[in-house]
């Protein structure tokens, strides 16, 4: 077990090294001089040179690379071009908003997605099943920003039920529209996975036995079938969590939700490269960490993984 954890741990470190390398490359392939971007176009040559010296931009690439890695490992990603604030600090400040949005949306999508999936599987090939699956495919097909806009139009601008823009410090109903918008895609994926996973399980002998011994339908579905169909559902959920905890970019942007996603898009619009680097790196690190944890949890729960 410990060797499994250790091996996974070192592999994660190896991936993080690649992630840092790619992020480093992003800034240094960019046309234009970072020092000049930091100071603005009107800065004089002497101060640009001074900043170049300070940032180590006149050193050879490999020196800069090593310096970038050592600093990144210590949690130092430089300062923003536009606000001059510490990048890591800014990102951590925005994290609670993103985490709140991600968790609430995933809880919503897990509950409704699994329910839709179960109904579809139990009533398979009926109208209800077809309708649910077309809805799920719709959920996968619509770009998040387009769905967000439609939600904002219908429930914000026309019906005026929920506010379109802002954070929960102005009231909890600010969470509703971004949460529902973010939930749609994972909800649709979970509904599809649950359906196919349940269909597979429902055809197995032990489910037939459970039915034959006279158990109620609900007991068969929830106690016997669902428990064994849960594995792929949990995998999908953890993958969605790993993806959304790094920021729900378009949704945060459209609903003006002050999380990492909004920060990322804002810094892209302003070409604030250290902040772009920071948000990209942060999302990737979150992804790797979550996956590492999920792997370990799986290994402790599933004896088959432990052995291999």
């Amino acid at each position: 077990m410990w060797t499994y954890i250790l091996r996974n741990f070192f592999y994660s470190i190896l991936i993080l090294l690649g992630v840092i390398t790619v992020t480093f490359a992003l800034l240094y392939i960019v046309p234009g001089d970072p020092a000049r971007m930091l100071l603005g176009q009107r800065a004089d040559v002497a101060s640009v040179e001074a900043v170049r010296e300070e940032l180590g931009l006149n050193k050879p690439l490999y020196v800069q690379y090593i310096k970038f890695i050592t600093k990144a490992v210590q949690g130092d990603l430089g300062t923003s071009y536009s606000t001059n604030r510490n990048v890591v600090k800014t990102i951590l400040d925005k994290f609670p908003a993103t985490a709140l949005l991600a968790f609430s949306a995933l809880i919503l999508s897990a509950i409704i997605g699994v329910l839709i999936g179960i109904i579809s599987a139990v009533k398979s090939y009926t109208f209800l099943d077809n309708a649910s699956m077309v809805f799920a495919l719709f959920g996968i097909s619509i770009p998040q920003f387009a769905f967000g806009l439609i939600m904002a139009l219908v429930f914000g601008a026309i019906l005026k039920w929920f506010p379109i823009s802002g954070y929960i410090n102005e009231g909890f109903n600010h969470l509703i529209l971004p949460m529902v918008t973010l939930a749609l895609r994972p909800l649709a994926i979970i509904a599809r996975i649950t359906r196919s996973s349940m269909l597979e399980v429902l055809n197995q002998d032990y489910v037939r036995t459970a039915k034959a011994k006279g158990l109620s339908n609900n007991a068969v579905i929830f106690k016997h079938a669902l428990r064994n169909a849960l594995n792929p559902i949990v995998t999908t959920l953890s993958a969605s969590l790993a993806a959304t905890l790094g920021g729900a970019f378009f949704i945060e942007y459209i609903f003006n939700w002050p999380g990492i996603g909004l920060l990322a898009i804002d810094s892209i619009m302003k070409l604030d490269f250290p902040m772009i680097q920071g948000t990209v790196l942060f999302s990737a690190v979150i992804f790797v960490i979550i996956n590492f944890i999920v792997d370990i949890v799986y290994a402790t729960l599933d004896p088959k993984v432990k052995l291999s």
Binding site: I15, V19, V22, F249, A264, V280, V285, V288
Partner: peptide, 10 residues
């Protein structure tokens, strides 16, 4: 795995 780790849209 490295490319996978980045949120693809970002």
């Amino acid at each position: 795995n490295v490319v996978w780790a980045f949120p693809s849209i970002l």
